[in-house]
Simulated scan of single mutants.
Amino acid sequence: MTTLLDLDREIDETEIGWLLSKRASAVKARDADYLVSRFAPGSTGFDLTPAPIAPGSTITDAADLRDWFDGFEDSIEYSVRDLAVVVGDDVAFAHSVDRFTATPVGGRRFQLWLRVTTGLRRSRGVWLITHEHRSVAAPPE
C-alpha cells in the first residue's frame, strides 16, 4: 500500500531529478545565471573546474562560470546517467555518473566522465544545492 509519505518522497525524488536534468540542459546552453541560481547561499563544492566551484569555494558568481564557458568552442554536451536520489524531510542526496564533452578553445574535443554527489536542502518549498562534489570517473560499461 502506498502511503502519503511515500508519494511525497516520490514527488521530491522526481523534482530533484528534474532539477539535475535541467542543470544539464543549462550547461549545454551555457546558462550561468540559472546554474548559479540553484545553489543555496553559502554553498560549497569540490570540482574539476577553476570557477565557480573551486575546492571549498562559495558558489555565487555567474561571471566566473561564464568565463569558464568561454574557454570552450562550439557545443558543450552534458548528460546525467545512473541518477540515484535519497530524500529525507528537508535534505536529500543524489549521485550520478555524468558525461561532459567539449572542445577547448584551440584544442581537441574530449569526453570526460564524472562521478557527482550533490547535497540538497529544501528552503521555502524549493530544493537548492548546498554542496556538490565531482571527480573523474571511469567510463561506464
Rank of each mutant, 00 (worst) to 15 (best):
T3C: 06
D6W: 01
L7D: 11
D8H: 06
R9K: 14
E10W: 08
I11C: 09
E15N: 13
I16F: 12
G17M: 01
L19Q: 10
L19A: 11
L20T: 10
S21T: 15
R23E: 15
A24D: 04
K28C: 14
A29K: 10
R30D: 07
R30Y: 07
R30F: 06
A32Y: 10
Y34M: 13
L35Q: 11
L35G: 10
L35S: 05
V36W: 07
F39Q: 09
F39Y: 15
G42D: 06
G42R: 02
S43C: 14
S43Q: 09
S43K: 02
T44W: 04
T44N: 12
G45S: 05
T49V: 08
P50Q: 05
A51I: 00
P52H: 08
A54K: 09
A54L: 04
P55C: 08
P55W: 12
P55A: 12
S57K: 04
I59L: 11
I59H: 10
T60C: 12
A62V: 02
A63N: 06
L65Y: 12
L65V: 05
L65A: 04
R66W: 00
R66Y: 01
D67A: 15
W68M: 02
F69P: 06
D70K: 13
G71V: 05
F72Q: 09
E73Q: 07
Y78T: 07
S79Y: 01
V80L: 09
V80F: 07
R81K: 08
R81G: 14
R81V: 02
D82E: 15
L83W: 06
L83E: 12
L83V: 09
A84D: 15
V86Y: 14
D89M: 04
D90I: 00
V91T: 14
A92I: 03
F93E: 12
A94M: 10
V97H: 13
F100S: 04
T101F: 01
T101W: 02
A102E: 06
T103C: 04
V105F: 00
R108S: 15
F110C: 01
Q111H: 00
Q111G: 11
L112E: 07
L112C: 02
L112T: 03
W113C: 03
L114I: 00
R115V: 00
R115G: 01
V116N: 14
V116D: 15
G119Y: 07
L120H: 05
G125P: 05
L128P: 05
I129F: 03
I129S: 04
T130C: 12
T130E: 07
H131Y: 06
R134Q: 13
V136F: 05
A137Y: 07
A138T: 11
A138S: 12
A138W: 05
P139E: 02
P139R: 01
P139C: 01
P140M: 13
P140G: 14
P140H: 05
E141H: 11
